[in-house]
Design a protein around this nucleic acid. Structure first.
Lengths: 213, 213
DNA sequence: TTATATTTGTGTTTTAGAACATAGTTCTAT
DNA sequence: ATAGAACTATGTTCTAAAACACAAATATAA
């Protein structure tokens, strides 16, 4: 997608960032400067809502881009980002990206497509989070985590270790309800849990619960 | 932003569409073909959710662009659009737009910025709709309608006549709750209603209710 | 016009899920 | 190793909002 010259220019302007588990990558209201590309680790994009109650908006996996929306919208960040686990992030000044983009239709279209896909997901999410019941929302989150981060070697354990609180904030419910509903799923033999490890036993069932809400 | 040649090409490929009140402009799952520019009228972008319950995702006013997201994401529409009132819409084939865009950085950036702004709004909306209470959500919708469509000559009546059902589906609540909460606002002298005409009496109060949720 | 459907308004009941309380458990740091 | 903090678990209470039921008002059509 890029010429050799462009590639060199990118390389000389890119910086590598390392973030520890739970370290903040950027904050709400900050001024966006860099395009971020997640090379290693897992990131959550979240927003603090009414009464400081936080809500996970999106999760990022390698190799996904993030942090560019606010810059393009000419706004400060409306979300914050933090590392679920140790992360390696490549950071490239947005000025440079914008400059490239103006003369590179493929690259422009690449960003347009990313934004379009994310906007579609956000629209779907509004309906899912507002209309589905807790069971449906949690089932959906579990399936979403599986899709995003995959399974471990056993082919059943979801490859991410989330606090119940994060699971709750991803599914728009209280921590108590996440814990309770998770227990219910265990009793119904849909999943098993071992600390933060969640093993999916009956994926079909989860799909069904997610679908009917 | 365009050369004369481009402008001519656009003109010769653009069609004008006219839609009657409540007429559908496009449907969920349809294949997106055209960029739409609303010249006259008011449009709602909505989505049918769990159990067919519909939810207004976005509203469009002149002169805003819509219908392009799904094309760029290479997906069928995930939303539907219909006319709140008689509309005039300019339709331009997305193939043409995409072709222009590849060679026109300013135009690409224009779409990138629109998508970025809309994605920010969608993120905010997730939090607002899930965390605020009915009063906060309705207050917010009223203010949003005022911002979007403005006021009539009296400087108080919101320039759109919505069924209570639409107001509900914009604010993520049942029609009963929209009606009831609207009545409460009237009793509290925050608004007055005359059929579907809503007059804002105490905007400051609405802002406050919207803010605290 | 009259009839029929749709929309609006209000009271009542029910329920999902938040809020709260408390205890057990597992991290983490010194 | 142990103290303190953070997380997980579960039972109980409370409440916002959905669901339901029914009028009244308004719009639409014959």
């Amino acid at each position: 997608m890029l010429t050799d010259v462009e590639r060199d220019q990118l390389r000389s302007n890119a910086r590598m960032g390392h973030f520890k588990k739970n370290e903040l990558i950027y904050l709400e209201d900050e001024c966006p400067k860099d395009l971020m590309i997640l090379f290693k680790g897992k990131v959550k994009i979240f927003k603090s809502g009414v009464g400081g109650r936080s809500q996970i908006i999106r999760i990022v996996r390698p190799v996904q881009y993030f942090g560019y929306r606010a810059y393009f919208a000419r706004e400060p960040y409306v979300t914050a980002a933090s590392a679920f686990e140790a992360c390696t992030v490549c950071m490239i000044p947005m000025e440079l990206i914008e400059q490239f983009l103006r003369n590179n239709g493929d690259m422009a279209l690449f960003f347009i497509q990313m934004l379009s896909v994310d906007l579609g997901i956000a629209d779907q999410r509004v309906v899912n989070l507002t209309q589905k019941h807790v069971r449906g929302r949690l089932a959906e989150s579990l399936l979403f985590l599986k899709e995003s981060y995959g399974l471990e070697e056993d082919g059943a354990t979801i490859s991410i270790y989330l606090a119940r609180e994060d699971l709750a904030s991803l599914s728009n419910m209280t921590t108590s309800n996440a814990i309770r509903t998770l227990s219910n799923f265990v009793n119904e033999r849909i999943i098993t849990i071992d600390g933060r490890k969640i093993k999916i036993i009956d994926e079909e069932r989860l799909h069904k619960i997610s679908r009917i809400g």
